[in-house]
């Protein structure tokens, strides 16, 4: 009548990831915001014939905009992946999960993986659309930029988790969506930071989107201060991860 052994890895399993992804893809709002919108923005802002002809680094401006939108899509996707915890806490699902062998750390690991998977899908969608819509850059730069846009979005998976634990709301993405848009402007993702004036350009360097954008574009542009960008990404990831950990510990403490 009883199970005699605890599941390995604290209940972390591919089966759970598969079910969670299926649920996420069922949510039309998530699909539109993370997969459709970044590609639509790219088509809207990056594919004028002037952009296709104008050069930017090793490719054209369309490719430059493509990378920015891939980063934006990855950010949205990973943030909403992390922020799933907020919806689940609001619904009492986290409490339900505590009646299973699933360990809190395994739950968070599943959330991070899901965030990164939908981040990857978002990056792939924008890049495929870009390939058919006139973006031009060397294959090596293309792969490098796509991988960096995806990998650096980990900072927003941490951000999403932190906010997910901080804001117990069912509609957390309605708050975080605009926040990400503002951060994208502030970090020079939509408009290059040096076009914003020197004061803004300086402030931009300290905002969390700046480092991700600079790094993701580097294989194309070979410009900018790479180490400053790496420092920016590392610092914000550490900060958001620490915040998420702090709230997570508080949330799962048995009182």
């Amino acid at each position: 009548m009883t199970t005699t052994a605890l599941p390995r890895l604290g209940g972390f399993s591919p089966g759970m990831i598969a079910l969670e992804l299926r649920r996420l893809m069922r949510n039309k709002r998530t699909v539109i915001f993370t997969l459709v919108m970044p590609a639509a923005f790219f088509l809207l802002f990056g594919t004028s014939s002037a952009y296709k002809d104008e050069r930017a680094g090793d490719g054209n401006v369309t490719a430059y905009v493509l990378i920015s939108m891939a980063v934006y899509g990855a950010m949205l996707a990973t943030t909403s992946g992390g922020a799933m915890v907020s919806i689940e806490r609001a619904a009492g699902w986290s409490r339900q999960l505590r009646l299973t062998p699933l360990k809190p750390a395994a739950y968070v690991a599943v959330k991070i993986i899901i965030a990164m998977v939908i981040g990857a899908v978002s990056v792939v969608v924008v890049n495929v659309v870009g390939a058919f819509a006139g973006a031009d850059m060397p294959v090596g730069a293309w792969i490098g930029c796509a991988l960096l846009s995806w990998a650096c979005a980990l900072v927003f998976a941490a951000f999403g988790l932190f906010m997910g634990y901080l804001l117990p709301s069912e509609n957390v993405m309605q708050i975080l969506g605009p926040v990400l848009a503002v951060l994208s402007f502030a970090g020079g993702l939509f408009v290059p930071a040096d076009q914003l004036g020197s004061t803004f350009a300086t402030i931009a360097k300290f905002t969390p989107v700046y480092g991700v954008g600079e790094l993701a574009r580097y294989p194309l542009t070979h410009s900018g201060d790479v180490w400053l960008a790496v420092l920016n990404v590392a610092a914000w990831t550490a900060l958001f991860a620490a915040g998420a950990m702090w709230r997570f510990r508080r949330d799962t403490a048995r009182v």
Binding site: A5, P7, M16, L19, R23, L24, R26, R95, T100, P101
Partner: peptide, 25 residues
Amino acid sequence: MQTGGLLKDYTVEETVRLTAVLFGK
């Protein structure tokens, strides 16, 4: 439990299947 604890976007079968996955059933 009294209330809560369910996710609206899952089907009934998926909810139980997730529980099965977690318990290794």
